[in-house]
Design a protein around this nucleic acid. Structure first.
Lengths: 224, 224
DNA sequence: CCAAAAGTGTTGATCCTACACCCATGT
DNA sequence: ACATGGGTGTAGGATCAACACTTTTGG
């Protein structure tokens, strides 16, 4: 089948910067490309939009296919459109930010990928296309939204301690935070509710909290 | 000439929400479509991306073609990708926000447009495509960025009084602001510099200020 | 009993808001 | 002289940052 147009058309992809916390460090999901161009290089997950889905739908589908989960946070943060960013043809990429708790993640190499890894942000391998730029943009978007706290829940399991929240917040922001002030702000924000449960750690048990419902009423911030 | 691909490709457009201040009110630039679909309806300026330009370049070019100016503020704020948003074919639109001072503006009907108007925001005509949605998104983006003041300069001439700034700020935010507090914050922000000049109004002359240089070092907030 | 993390309030500094009077100019 | 907008400061309240000790559990 051949698709023909009176004017040239670019292809559209979504690329997804999926972040998680692993051992307290912020990591990003990379796949190793199995095919040219950039065969063997690491890249962000993503793929071509189909003609029957929206960009959001494409990002959600690709993420599901690559990781097997629906991310609680998934929104677009930038467009990448340099004419020669893909050697095959003109490709416009809409970049999405996604956050998932590690435990909900089942990343596996799919048909197009030789391997999958969680890469530490300050130890990234060489990347295909302009994906290093996209990751830089994703971190900026992540930090700027993180100040409103809500996005942090995307990295945490459904029930979490205040300390876990603080660790996630600090990992994203890349700096330590005052424990009592952060807890005061978080508890006063109305974004979390205490549960009756406590953690069963190695030391004194901590109360578990959960994020309020309808935290992401429209998962897409800005139409897409 | 026919362009053929092994997979279907959407078309890409940029649509530009150009705001200005007219008689103290925030207005948006609309063109009346000369051709189907939606012939005769009002729409945002915009057009198809060429294969040799970036999305930013496309928006800048379209704006120049439609208005004859380079806007001091021009950045993308959302993507619109509903499969049936354009009855002709699949079209993805990248929506841009632009601000220009009215005096730098030379809007004219070009080849595709029967007419051009500055439409008052609370008296919009029926709009083609999903452009009403896009305008809604643009106003949200405008208000949220406006809190940092910088974007307001896009609506003002190079030299402006503090009162003119306040009028522009109030028009965008849709609410009055305290004069002394706004002036204090603006002067303390380091974003403006006093000039030696004064306005020649009907009353006591007011000092003229100008925005600092390099206010928009990267005009595009978030890659595109 | 010791180590490790959980829990909890106050104080001082800063920032923001609300508010009123005098000044310079044109008519 | 007066009308119009320009220019300026302060006091009270709210918010934010800094900071230390006690409690609970497991080992």
């Amino acid at each position: 089948m051949i698709y023909s147009y009176p004017y040239p058309h670019p292809a559209i992809t979504t690329d997804i910067a999926v972040f998680t916390l692993r051992e307290g460090r912020l990591c990003i999901l990379l796949i190793q490309r199995g095919q040219d161009p950039y065969a063997g290089a690491w890249a962000l997950p993503g793929g071509f939009m189909s003609m029957t889905e929206t960009l959001d739908g494409c990002a959600r589908r690709e993420l599901l296919e690559e990781t097997g989960v629906e991310a609680p946070v998934l929104f677009p943060f930038g467009n990448y459109s340099e004419p020669n960013r893909d050697p095959r043809e003109r490709v416009i990429s809409v970049a999405y930010l996604a956050l998932i708790p590690l435990d909900r993640m089942s990343a596996r190499a799919d048909t197009d990928a030789k391997a999958v890894q969680w890469a530490d942000l300050d130890d990234l391998p060489p990347l295909a296309f302009d994906h290093a730029d996209i990751i830089e943009g994703a971190i900026k978007a992540l930090r700027s939204r993180c100040e409103a706290f809500e996005i942090v829940f995307g990295l945490l399991p459904a029930r979490f301690t205040l300390s876990a929240f603080q660790a996630a917040y600090e990992a994203v922001m890349g700096m330590p935070a005052d424990r009592r002030n952060l807890q005061k702000a978080l508890l006063g924000s109305g974004l979390i509710l205490a549960t009756e449960e406590v953690s069963c750690g190695r030391h004194r048990p901590a109360r578990l909290y959960r994020a309020i419902e309808n935290l992401y009423p429209c998962r897409t911030l800005g139409a897409t």
